[in-house]
Design a protein around this nucleic acid. Sequence first.
DNA 1: TAATCTCTATACTCGCTAGTAAACAAAAGA
DNA 2: TCTTTTGTTTACTAGCGAGTATAGAGATTA
Lengths: 209, 209
Amino acid sequence: MPRKAAQIDASPWSQPGDRERERAAKREAVLRTAARFFNQKGFHATSLDDVATALNVTKPTIYHYFANKDEILFECTRRGLSAIIDASREAAAQGGTGASRLRSVLMAYAMVMLDDYGICVARTQDYNLTEASRKQFRALKRDIDALIRQVVAEGAEDGSLKVRDVRIATFTAAQALNGMGNWYNSDGPVGKEDTARQVVETLMDGLSG
Amino acid sequence: MPRKAAQIDASPWSQPGDRERERAAKREAVLRTAARFFNQKGFHATSLDDVATALNVTKPTIYHYFANKDEILFECTRRGLSAIIDASREAAAQGGTGASRLRSVLMAYAMVMLDDYGICVARTQDYNLTEASRKQFRALKRDIDALIRQVVAEGAEDGSLKVRDVRIATFTAAQALNGMGNWYNSDGPVGKEDTARQVVETLMDGLSG
DNA sequence: TAATCTCTATACTCGCTAGTAAACAAAAGA
DNA sequence: TCTTTTGTTTACTAGCGAGTATAGAGATTA
């Protein structure tokens, strides 16, 4: 079995750049913790004291890494949305029919929607964000929508997909995947990838026999 | 054109039962208004002062009709959930194949999800409710889930549906419909029924050609 | 007419949470 | 060693919103 290169970052003698790495790691920890709280209790019901306490620090520490609560929420969603965009772009650039590319895109999307940041994306309504963040949030969502529609349209053209209305087909699939976080149980017997695959197959094949 | 019986309720001489009717009408107005605010701004961000002001009354008036904010939210969702249950039960009791009954059930479900209370159901996470309401909320949702699964299972048995996993198929369809309120634009050119029909067809037929 | 019940308003309390001021600790650099 | 920068704390402010005490107006009943 191949191993990862062992522990090169763990030296007690600090390297230049350690500072920035630690700062980034702490930011990330705040975001991850916040996302979990948001998903579990909701954005408004989560206080930054909750997040701070969970991280064994106090609230002002969090304000040392983020300007305000809105920035934290937005960064959580940005991570989710970027993950979708990156994975989808890659999937969309493969060869094969439109249908097979759509399958890949939906799988990528589905996998993100089973993670903290993806669930956060699904649960965040844009009224939770300030005007400025909202604009970016919407823009990212529009990008994703355009990306999927493009693949759907290509599949319709090459005949591998049968779609009455590209817009409706895209929304229907996307919402079905967005909802996965509401019912998937990560403690259950079925893994994320299997679940994602089955949902995607259901969407591709339809329910009728 | 047939007309409704004209205005028999509008007599200035009050009838026995007027009191109760007015009370019920006012309760309903509070719920409808609250549901719209919840959907537009979110539950936490909606203050009962918002709702009261929109109805030209003050907050204590609302407390004359409801015990607390939780009861208002729960009643909104109960209306949505009951509408789904009633319509679905009716649809499920029709004749025909499992597939045709599932179509009817999904159509009924979809139509509710395009209305205020339905959207409220879709957006309400159970952490928004108190322990007691949450129990009822979950029970109603379980009933709906069971109802749909039943029809899906029957369709799988009579061969009119091809379904790998009843649970996953049901969740996938339900979540796709739950999400309709997030993208459907009631000011747009396409009506609710047409939209619902197209989404349901997409789910039934699938995306692949 | 008097007594009561229903509805609504004014004017509050109380608790919670986003965000801040200021000080202190610890490390980095000169 | 002295100074500066970075990270963290304690202790606060300020504002909002759920829920209530109380009183008064209108209708209902006796």
